[in-house]
């Protein structure tokens, strides 16, 4: 039975969450400053593809929240090839992101007389644009993102589901899918234009 596009999106979004999630939060990590859920979702409506639908965007935002909770600041990174140094990820971006969400609300109130979540998507994008413009044109790693809007978008667009949606094919990168079928053209996603 052919799965529906919506089912595919649902399953794939779940996969994003599984792949993105750590097996457990690092011991001793402090609780990050909470990311205001309503404002974060409003950011998601501005930066994530509309074609995901409300359910798909919600799953993408939820996957980001879970990922964010597991983030360990200043974690050891893989050693650069033939460079005898130990390199680390950056400091905790979450307090800054939380403050940015709060700032979006304040700015929205001043500019439009309503919270960020209450204004329309065009207004939200006007507020976000200078922040996104400064970060681009590449997404970079979400943990390195200077703004929460870029972090959220980078997290989604780096995911296997985003790649599959772009190509309209079930590529399933990084999914441990066995050697069988490697030589086949990936199957079209149901309902997707190839």
């Amino acid at each position: 039975m052919a799965e529906s596009r919506r089912t595919f999106l649902k399953q794939s979004a779940a996969t994003v969450a599984v792949v993105s999630l750590p097996s457990c939060a690092p011991a001793g990590a402090e609780s990050p400053d909470a990311l205001a859920p309503a404002t974060l979702r409003a950011v998601g409506e501005a930066v994530l593809p509309e074609e995901l639908g409300a359910d798909g965007r919600e799953r993408a935002v939820a996957a980001f929240e879970l990922w964010s909770e597991g983030l360990e600041p200043v974690a050891e990174m893989p050693h650069p090839y033939l460079v005898p140094v130990t390199v680390y990820t950056g400091p905790d971006p979450r307090p800054g992101w939380a403050a940015q969400l709060s700032g979006l609300d304040i700015e929205s109130g001043k500019r439009f007389g309503a919270s960020f979540a209450e204004v329309g998507v065009p207004e939200r994008r006007r507020i976000l644009e200078p922040h996104v413009r400064r970060a681009g044109p590449d997404f970079g790693r979400p943990g390195n993102a200077a703004h929460i809007a870029v972090a959220l978008a980078a997290h989604f667009f780096a995911s296997p589901i985003a790649t599959d949606l772009c190509y309209g094919r079930a590529i399933a990168k990084q999914q441990c899918r066995g050697l069988a079928g490697a030589g086949d053209e990936p199957a079209p996603l149901p309902g997707a234009a190839s």
Partner: peptide, 23 residues
């Protein structure tokens, strides 16, 4: 999973601090 999600070293503590050279 953590390497994919966060870019972390999948082989933590695989070196000896201070026991390293130049070049």
């Amino acid at each position: 999973a953590r390497m994919l999600a966060y870019g972390e070293n999948p082989y933590p503590n695989d070196h000896i601090p201070g026991q390293t050279g130049t070049g």
